[in-house]
Simulated assay, not measured.
Amino acid sequence: MKEKIEILLSKNKLFLGIGGSILFVILGIWLFLSADSFQQHSFRLLRNPMVIKGIGVLGILFFGATGIFGFKKLFDKKVGLIIDSSGITDNSNASSVGLIEWKDITDIETKQFMSTKFLLINVSNPEKYIGKAKSGMKAKLMRSNMKIYGTPLSITSNTLKYDFGKLEQLIHTEFEQNKNVG
Rank of each mutant, 00 (worst) to 15 (best):
L153V: 10
K53S: 01
K72D: 13
T106L: 06
K117W: 03
T151I: 03
K53L: 01
G67A: 07
I88N: 00
K77Y: 02
S157P: 06
G17S: 12
I26N: 12
K77E: 12
F113H: 11
T159R: 01
S86Y: 04
T110L: 03
I22P: 01
S37Q: 15
F62D: 00
I108N: 02
L23V: 13
K128R: 10
S42Y: 10
L23P: 14
F69P: 01
D36W: 10
V97N: 03
D104F: 00
N12C: 06
I60E: 01
G87M: 01
Q169Y: 13
R47H: 10
K72Y: 08
D104G: 00
P49H: 05
P126W: 03
F43R: 07
G20M: 15
N158V: 15
H41Y: 12
R47C: 13
E109Q: 10
L14F: 12
K72N: 13
L81F: 04
S85T: 08
P126Q: 14
S115T: 12
L120W: 12
A133Q: 02
E127I: 15
A35V: 07
N178M: 08
L46C: 09
S92T: 14
G70K: 08
G67V: 08
Y149V: 05
N125L: 02
T66F: 01
L120G: 05
F75W: 07
L33S: 06
K77V: 09
K77H: 06
K73S: 11
M114K: 13
G150T: 15
N91E: 14
Q112P: 02
G131L: 07
Q40C: 04
G150M: 13
N93L: 12
Q40F: 09
L9I: 08
L153C: 00
I155M: 14
A133L: 08
N122A: 05
G165K: 14
S96G: 08
E6R: 11
S37P: 03
R44I: 15
V97P: 00
K147D: 08
T116Q: 09
F164L: 10
G64D: 04
N91W: 07
G19Q: 14
I82N: 04
Q177L: 15
K138V: 15
F15W: 14
A133F: 07
E109C: 08
K72I: 15
L45T: 15
G54R: 02
E3V: 12
E168G: 00
T151D: 01
I26H: 14
K128G: 05
F15H: 10
K132M: 11
G59T: 00
R143K: 15
K134V: 02
E174D: 05
L16S: 13
E127H: 12
K179M: 07
E6L: 11
R44A: 14
K138F: 13
L119W: 09
I26K: 11
A94W: 05
G17L: 15
F118K: 03
L46Q: 00
G64N: 01
K117R: 09
T116R: 06
N48R: 00
Q112V: 12
K179Y: 06
A139K: 14
S37N: 11
V57M: 09
P152D: 13
S124P: 00
F71R: 05
I108M: 06
S157F: 04
K134C: 00
I22D: 02
V79R: 01
M114E: 11
I26R: 13
A35T: 08
I82G: 09
F15Q: 09
